[in-house]
C-alpha cells in the first residue's frame, strides 16, 4: 500500500499542507518497503492557474493507493484524481505526517470520495 500526503516538508515530522494543488511537497509512504520518499512541488508557487491539475498529474504518476490531505482537492483536481482511482482522505490539516498516518489508521479522517 502506498500512501501519499500533501506536506510542508519531507519527513514524518513535517506539517501536512492543507492545500492540494499548491502543496509544497508530496510525501509518499510505501508500507511494504517501509520507505518515505518525496516529490518537490514548490514550482507551482509561480503559476497563476492550473495548480490543481498539475499536482494531480504528478500524483497520478506516483500511483499511490491513498491520498491524505487537508482541505481536499478543488474541482479541477478532483476531476483528474477520479481517473486515478485512489482513495482520498481529508481533515489532516494541522497534523504532522506521522499524526496524519496514525489518524488514517484509526479511521478518524474524512473520506473525500
Amino acid at each position: 500500500m502506498k500512501i501519499a500526503f500533501t506536506a510542508k516538508g519531507i519527513d514524518w515530522d513535517a506539517q501536512i499542507d492543507p492545500r492540494f494543488g499548491r502543496t509544497d511537497y508530496i510525501v509518499v509512504y510505501d508500507e511494504e518497503a517501509d520507505t518515505l520518499t518525496n516529490t518537490d512541488n514548490r514550482e507551482v508557487e509561480g503559476i497563476a492557474h492550473g495548480a490543481g491539475p498539475q499536482t494531480a498529474q504528478k500524483l497520478f504518476d506516483l500511483a499511490p493507493d491513498v491520498l491524505i490531505t487537508g482541505n481536499g482537492p478543488g474541482g479541477n483536481a478532483a476531476a483528474a484524481l477520479q481517473k486515478a482511482k485512489l482513495k482520498i482522505f481529508t481533515g489532516a490539516g494541522g497534523m504532522t505526517v506521522k499524526e496524519a498516518f496514525e489518524a488514517y489508521k484509526k479511521g478518524s479522517l474524512q473520506d473525500f470520495s
Binding site: 491539475p53 498529474q57 476531476a79 483528474a80 481517473k83 486515478a84
Partner: peptide
C-alpha cells in the same frame, strides 16, 4: 495546465 496526460488518457480542463 489546462490539458494533462493521465496514464492512457488526455484530460482537458
Amino acid at each position: 495546465h489546462s490539458i494533462i496526460k493521465l496514464g492512457k488518457e488526455i484530460m482537458v480542463f
